[in-house]
Simulated scan of single mutants.
Amino acid sequence: MLKRTPLYPIYAEHGGRVIDFGGWELPVQFSSIQKEHDAVRQQAGLFDVSHMGEILVEGPGALQFLQKLTTNDVAKLADGQCQYSLMCYPSGGVVDDLLVYKMADTRYMLVVNASNIEKDLAWLTEHASDGAQLTNMSDQTALLALQGPMAEPILSKLTDAPLSTLSPFHFLENVSIAGILTLLSRSGYTGEDGFELYVSAKDAIPLWQKLLEAGEEHGLLPAGLGARDTLRFEARLPLYGQELSAEITPLEAGLSFFVKLKKGDFIGRDALLEQKEKGLPRKLVGIEMQERGIPRSHYKVYADDKPIGEITTGTQSPTYKRNVGLALIDSAYTAPGTEVAVEIRGVQVKAVVVPTPFHKKK
């Protein structure tokens, strides 16, 4: 039986085409992936991301506990601020990537990937310490993402919260949006400006409808998982299971900025420190095809006629119409301009290493 978000009942009226996404019945698209992608880059798109998990960590030992479990420095957070971080295994491989929200010195919220909720809870519980209580809020919480350059003008019609002064990776609690109490965060997963709105599950449908009404004159479209994936890919934002996994470390994935090796001990630190000191055996890079063909996940990458790694994500960029990919390959071949080849249906097709991200917001 596939899981459904509180917004499932209204997918059909927007033309949503649903697929099985990691055990969830979710819309891959409403109109078309290209239209929804373009809307987010140029106007705005509205995503149902209620499948994501929310876990509260509370108590006098919450900070110490999170410092031990995550790679970023939680002590640097002010109240009302959030950070991107990762949880690692002792091997340095990734349990999950997540957002850490600081509500107070003794109260934090973790936002984790839907497919990892049970695994993450088990991992957190296994390492739980006195003074830090865990509460899984995932089923009670819905999450809508309003993304794109018109996100602020649209949202400002429904709230008098000070949106213009809310910086990226900051949030406000108990904000009234169209009369609905919301945790409002300036964050997202598209490479554009935007907001994530956490509400009670029962308020998801009314909020969705109010946002679409407010955004109609600004070109707001409901958007599905297809556009979410192409948008995050162009911005070089990692997807767990592709750019990150138990076998891929944050350093290999190019996320060293979020790994604070000097903050003190955390799970995975020794392995990551050793990897940094010895030099990375492989790195995540951008590649662009030089001949016809689209690089897809797990396609093998070659150089000098030998396999050097594989594609983690690849597609034709909807914004730039170039056939591009992210590839995890031997470090010796990662300089921009290096010629490589991607095996597509048994044939080695020419490609070249290029800088990333493929898209930066204007």
Rank of each mutant, 00 (worst) to 15 (best):
E36L: 01
A39Y: 14
L328N: 05
T141D: 08
S297H: 10
F21R: 13
D203L: 09
G131T: 07
I287M: 13
V49S: 14
T70F: 09
G45Q: 06
H298S: 13
L66F: 12
T125I: 01
Q29W: 08
D193P: 04
F258P: 01
F30S: 05
I180H: 07
Q147C: 07
Y11R: 09
T313C: 13
E173Q: 11
A223Y: 00
P222Y: 00
L183E: 09
A161L: 02
F258H: 09
C82M: 15
P238S: 08
D304I: 03
R232D: 04
D305T: 04
L184N: 05
G80E: 08
A62G: 09
A235P: 01
T334I: 05
E247R: 12
R282C: 03
E339A: 13
G148R: 07
E343A: 08
V57C: 10
D79H: 06
K119F: 10
L284Q: 10
T190N: 14
L181F: 02
P153W: 02
P60E: 14
I294E: 05
W24P: 03
R107K: 14
A235M: 11
T182L: 01
V18A: 12
Q43K: 13
L26A: 01
F258C: 06
V324E: 08
H127Q: 08
G337V: 06
I33V: 15
Q81A: 15
S85H: 09
P250C: 14
S200Y: 11
G61Q: 05
G93Y: 15
Y333S: 03
A145G: 00
K35P: 00
F47A: 05
R322Q: 13
A39K: 12
E196Y: 10
V74N: 11
L172N: 00
E343R: 04
A271C: 02
V18M: 13
L69F: 14
L211A: 06
T190L: 11
K263M: 11
V347D: 07
I10H: 10
A114I: 02
K276N: 12
R292Q: 14
T190G: 13
N174V: 00
K362Y: 02
G188W: 12
N116Q: 15
L166T: 11
K360H: 06
A227S: 15
L163K: 10
K102S: 08
W123H: 14
G279C: 06
S331P: 07
Q275H: 07
Y299A: 08
K361M: 09
G148F: 02
D193Q: 06
A161S: 06
I180Q: 02
L255Q: 09
I294W: 02
E118C: 00
L7Y: 02
Y189W: 12
G254P: 12
V342T: 05
E25D: 13
I294A: 05
R4I: 07
K276V: 01
D73Y: 11
G22A: 14
E126H: 15
Q29C: 07
P336N: 13
P149R: 01
D105M: 09
T106K: 12
L121R: 12
F233A: 08
A204I: 03
A351L: 04
S31R: 06
E288K: 13
A341C: 12
